[in-house]
């Protein structure tokens, strides 16, 4: 990647990884392996939930990471509007992308867990419904980012959509909670709170930390790739302009 960018800028990453991200990546891989070991071998099935409790070691960490990334997205979006910062704009993009992946994973493993525990892939629970709506809102955010536009226009547009989505999170959650409380059968939800202690508790905490690190690692990498792509686009335009000038004046440039 470094070779393809002829004139890297003074500030910002110049390659897709650094020593720090490589170390972080190694820690993530080891962490995932240890979490897998604890989730599948060390801890046993739950007294009430059986083997389905193992899904919790992915479900809870991914949804926590996703919500943190959405909050980070809102923060970067506000900073983008305030300071017109390309760094914050691309960081917001990276947060949203990884956040959507995490939310998607949450929904999928949640549906599998629901099928095993409640007997249905989907129940109209407040948290589930809020997560599904959030997922759609951030898919919309990424679609806005995908619209062809100059970088500054794209940054402003997507920052506004990001802020609007974040403003709505409490309203969506509150409304869905009220609505679900009218519909939800309490006896179904009664099964949801297992008592976690000992190895199960440790495994859950471990997976929370590991998935948080994985989310940070993925976000940093995504950010670096986005930053380099942006630089490449700018360099590409400059090179094309130079080439046309050279054609006009008959001077060979940079070949």
């Amino acid at each position: 990647m470094t070779e393809s960018v002829p004139a890297p800028p003074a500030v910002g990453p110049t390659s897709t990884s650094s020593r720090g991200t490589r170390v972080l990546g190694a820690v993530c891989l080891v962490g995932l392996a240890v979490t897998g070991l604890y989730a599948f071998v060390v801890t046993g099935p739950d007294v009430r939930l059986g083997n389905s409790v193992r899904i919790m070691y992915v479900h809870v960490p991914t949804v926590t990471a996703a919500y943190c990334l959405m909050i980070a997205n809102a923060g970067f979006s506000i900073y983008t509007l305030w300071k017109k910062s390309t760094f914050a704009d691309l960081a917001a993009h990276a947060c949203a992308e990884v956040g959507v992946v995490m939310l998607g994973l949450t929904l999928v493993v949640g549906a599998i867990w629901g099928r095993m525990t409640w007997g249905a892939f989907w129940v109209w629970d407040a948290r589930l419904t809020t997560t599904a709506l959030l997922f759609l809102m951030y898919v919309g955010y990424l679609a806005v980012r995908g619209l062809p536009a100059p970088p500054r226009v794209r940054a402003t547009r997507s920052a506004i959509v990001g802020i609007a989505a974040a403003c709505l999170i409490p309203v969506v959650h509150k409304s869905v909670e009220w609505w679900a409380s009218l519909h939800q059968n309490e006896t179904v939800l009664g099964k949801v709170n297992p008592n976690i202690e000992g190895n199960q508790y440790f495994t859950l905490m471990l997976s929370m930390v590991v998935f948080a690190l994985v989310a940070v690692w993925l976000t940093i990498h995504r950010f670096r790739v986005l930053w380099l792509t942006e630089q490449l686009d700018e360099v590409g335009v400059d090179a094309a302009i130079d080439e046309r000038r050279a054609e006009h004046t008959g001077v060979e440039v940079g070949r």
């Binding site: 759609l136 679609a143 609007a164």
Partner: peptide, 29 residues
């Protein structure tokens, strides 16, 4: 708020329902 982002241009019209409908879910509820 979402109109200027996603309406009026040919390649954006399909985006408006995706942006607007999830946001309007609390209103529907």
């Amino acid at each position: 708020l979402y109109g200027p982002l996603a309406a009026g241009l040919r390649n954006r019209d399909t985006l408006l329902p995706l942006l607007l409908l999830p946001v309007l879910a609390p209103i529907l509820l």
